[in-house]
Design a protein around this nucleic acid. Structure first.
Length: 425
DNA sequence: TACTTCGGCCAC
DNA sequence: AAACGTGGCCGAAGTA
């Protein structure tokens, strides 16, 4: 039997069962108060929009918005949807927001509508004990990641109202969260075997800052790049994420307000610094073209029949496949790393901390509900539990890094006091 | 009423 | 026309 089946997926089943049994405690009062605050706001904004557009106008309808903006008001169409209709998404509306006051109001309305329709209904979805119990799907993605119901994986971070504050620990308990730092970049460095990137990561400094310093030849410390050269650091950040996603120079250029040539130059400089990253990407493309599938270091595979297309008219399909081939070995291996960490945490809790509950798994993060008196101890144990995974033979020669935070709610997690790096060694 | 498609938007 | 990978889920509108 192969590794993934015997050491990952099968042992994970009882962990997921626990996760589903535990659920996440909800502060229902928080959400009903927020709803009661937002509903009149929404009604006010709707009234103002309807003054301009007519009484039966519904800003929840993209069709009606398009009709109003592009027909009645004859505003220019910034972009179209996949099917060719004039787009009314946030990006388009923001571009038009100076043209007409109603656009601004529609944007405000959409923000509130999203919160009310999607993120204020948890009180209706909790069980008798006020716990939300998402269902995890172990085979919900092609890459090995978990999927989950109840929007537990898509709670907004910067919504202005602190939605995450409504996800709480009971009295006498704290939420303890553990995140892998830059998990996918660690994976990329490891599976590509790029010595420069591995060293950059091992150094423990801000990775985007360090790479920006290297590529732009900055003369400050890597950890100061974020403050002193924010823009340059953001460019590197976009490039590094772009590599994980197979992003084109063209779309990088658009996001960073650069010319395509400038973006291409940056990517070139990046690859010059990390040659094995470039080779790894090329090899992923070549493998997928040759074989019609791709496989990661743990043996997880994905069929990619479109990678073998050759026709001119199939170029789009081919390229989409090659991006998938490029992303898969990174995202898939990262998902296995998280699953291994889940299994270790679960086993350790079962043996030593019967009061602790695992309550969330979110791609590169795990959360636990921990009795106050055990928080210190468990927080200190977590990094080793999640990083000593026995995966050296799969190419992971440098340890992953984990950051632990804790707090009364998901929205108020704060850095946990950690032992210094020196004493950890 | 039930289901599907579309446009849109939230996360990692 | 766009050109960024993996998803869930919302309301509107159309269809069975």
């Amino acid at each position: 039997m192969n590794y993934l089946m015997t050491k990952v997926e099968m042992p994970l089943i009882p962990v997921i069962a626990e996760l589903e049994k535990n659920g996440y405690l909800i502060d229902c009062g928080f959400f009903t108060s927020l709803r009661d605050y937002l509903e009149p706001e929404q009604a006010d904004i709707l009234a103002k929009i309807q003054e301009i557009a007519g009484l039966e106008f519904n800003p929840n309808s993209s069709k009606q918005i398009a009709k109003l903006l592009y027909e009645a008001l004859s505003l220019p169409i910034p972009k179209k949807t996949e099917k060719g209709s004039p787009s009314t998404d946030e990006e388009s509306l923001t571009l038009l927001s100076n043209e007409n006051q109603v656009v601004h109001k529609i944007l405000q309305y959409k923000k509130i509508a999203k919160l009310l329709s999607t993120y204020c209904k948890f009180p209706l979805e909790v069980d008798y004990d006020l716990r939300l119990r998402p269902k995890y799907n172990q085979i919900g993605t092609v890459t090995g990641r978990l999927t989950a119901t109840n929007k537990i994986q898509t709670l907004p971070k910067e919504d202005g109202y602190g939605i995450r504050n409504g996800f709480i620990a009971p009295p006498g308990f704290k939420i303890v969260a553990a995140d892998f730092d830059q998990q996918e970049l660690f994976v990329l460095a490891s599976v590509s075997g790029d010595q420069a990137m591995l060293e950059a990561i091992s150094s423990g400094v801000d990775l985007h800052g360090l790479v920006a310093k290297k590529i732009f030849d900055l003369d400050c410390e890597p950890n100061e790049v974020k403050r002193l050269h924010t823009k340059k650091r953001n460019q590197i950040k976009a490039i590094q994420f772009g590599i994980i996603y197979g992003r084109s120079a063209q779309s990088l250029a658009k996001e960073l307000s650069l010319t395509v040539e400038e973006a291409e130059g940056l990517v070139k400089a990046y690859f010059k610094s990390f040659p094995k990253v470039e080779a790894f990407i090329e090899n992923s493309h070549i493998f997928a073209k040759r074989n019609g599938y791709i496989v990661d270091v743990f043996g997880r595979s994905r069929v990619l029949p479109d990678a073998q297309r050759t026709g001119r008219s199939e170029f789009g399909l081919l390229n989409a496949s090659l991006r998938e081939a490029q992303n898969f070995p990174i995202q898939a291996a990262a998902s296995t790393v998280t699953k291994l960490a889940m299994i270790q945490c679960h086993n350790h809790i079962r043996e030593s901390h019967p009061q602790i509950k695992m309550i969330l798994s979110l791609h590169d993060e795990l959360q636990f509900e921990v009795p106050d008196e055990e928080v210190e101890h468990f927080a200190a144990e977590l990094p080793a539990l999640m990083t000593d995974l026995g995966v050296e033979s799969f190419g992971f020669k440098i340890p992953f890094k984990v950051t632990v935070t804790s707090g009364q709610s998901w929205g108020s997690l704060a850095a946990h006091q950690q032992p210094s790096l020196e004493s950890a060694k």
